[in-house]
Design a protein around this nucleic acid. Structure first.
Length: 290
DNA sequence: TTAAATTCCTGTAAGC
DNA sequence: TGCTTACAGGAATTTA
């Protein structure tokens, strides 16, 4: 399922193709996939917009839009990036955002199609419909709580080990549960929580606040290693994840623990254990993770 | 404030 | 083979 590395891969792939393009038409086959504003308003607002830039925040894809009357003035004319209108895409568990030629057959569960001025189509598909589309300025979406306040980006160079320690020390939940909390750290999901805890040799059910500064530093390092390695390998296709071209990633073959319950630990050979934390299957090694 | 439980949703796989 | 059932999980919402 798409977590930070998968979303980053999609954004990086789409950026050079989408920036500068104009949305000439938008069709919603399943309108309730749009959570804000009302679907008709969403379609009206998005048509005619030019895509200025693309970014990612946590697991959210941010597509910055500029209306025709500001073309040529640059995206900053409206008063800075935070005030720009954003088309926001969250992929949930099974969401796919693909750039295709119009002749490509329409896959089932394709809920939204954005027609671009170069003839190509940006299609949103999501069988389980846990994903969503939003439209608004970042400020408006945050203050109206359509988008949650997210914690720091774990791969941001500014994100220091002490910052992670500070965010963990007050928490009484399992460390795994806190890693999944998007308000604590943005972008980490079930796959990379398990992977980084294994790499840091930490038990996932350990109370977050009980971690020493040294352990937090180790977790900080392994989080960054797990995420950047996964980005380099174009993400993990363990379920339905596909990149913007419909291709699978490469990281699923290199995962240390996720999805390997009962199989031997690569470090010590002992079978990996599976427990449930915060409602999620959690795989770890009882010998290597203390 | 924090944390746990519940809900949404459908494809897949296991079990009979 | 075909049916039923359990399971997968991100995050909003509800409850404690």
């Amino acid at each position: 399922m798409p977590e930070l590395p998968e979303v980053e891969t999609i954004v990086a792939d789409l950026r050079p193709h989408l920036v500068g393009r104009t949305i000439v038409r938008c069709e919603l086959n399943f309108p309730t996939i749009v959570r804000h504003p009302e679907p008709e308003e969403f379609v009206d607002a998005v048509v005619g917009m030019r895509i200025d830039s693309m970014g990612r925040r946590g697991k959210y894809i941010l597509i910055s839009l500029t209306p025709p009357h500001l073309w040529g003035g640059g995206g900053e004319a409206a008063g800075g990036a935070a005030n720009n209108l954003q088309l926001v895409v969250h992929l949930g568990m099974t969401g796919q955002l693909r750039l295709v030629d119009p002749v490509a057959p329409l896959a089932n569960h394709t809920h939204a199609v954005f027609f671009l001025d170069d003839g190509r189509q940006l299609r949103y598909r999501d069988p389980r419909r846990f994903g969503r589309l939003l439209l608004g300025t970042e400020q408006a979406l945050l203050s109206s709580k359509k988008m949650p306040r997210l914690g720091p980006e774990p791969i941001d160079p500014e994100f220091a080990p002490d910052e992670l320690y500070r965010r963990l020390r007050t928490r009484r939940a399992a460390i795994k549960a806190v890693l999944l909390d998007q308000g604590a750290i943005a972008g980490v999901g079930n796959i990379y929580a398990d992977e980084s805890l294994h790499k840091a040799r930490l038990r996932p059910d350990r109370i977050a606040g009980s971690l020493s500064k040294k352990s937090a530093r180790r977790l900080h390092e392994s989080l960054r290693e797990s995420l950047t390695l996964a980005i380099a390998n174009r993400g993990s296709s363990v379920d339905t994840y596909r990149d913007a071209w419909g291709e699978i990633g490469g990281q699923q073959e290199k995962l240390l623990v996720y999805g390997r319950a009962g199989e031997p630990c690569f470090t010590c050979g002992r079978p990996l254990s599976a427990i449930r934390i915060a409602g999620r299957t959690t795989v770890f090694c009882r010998r290597c993770q203390r």
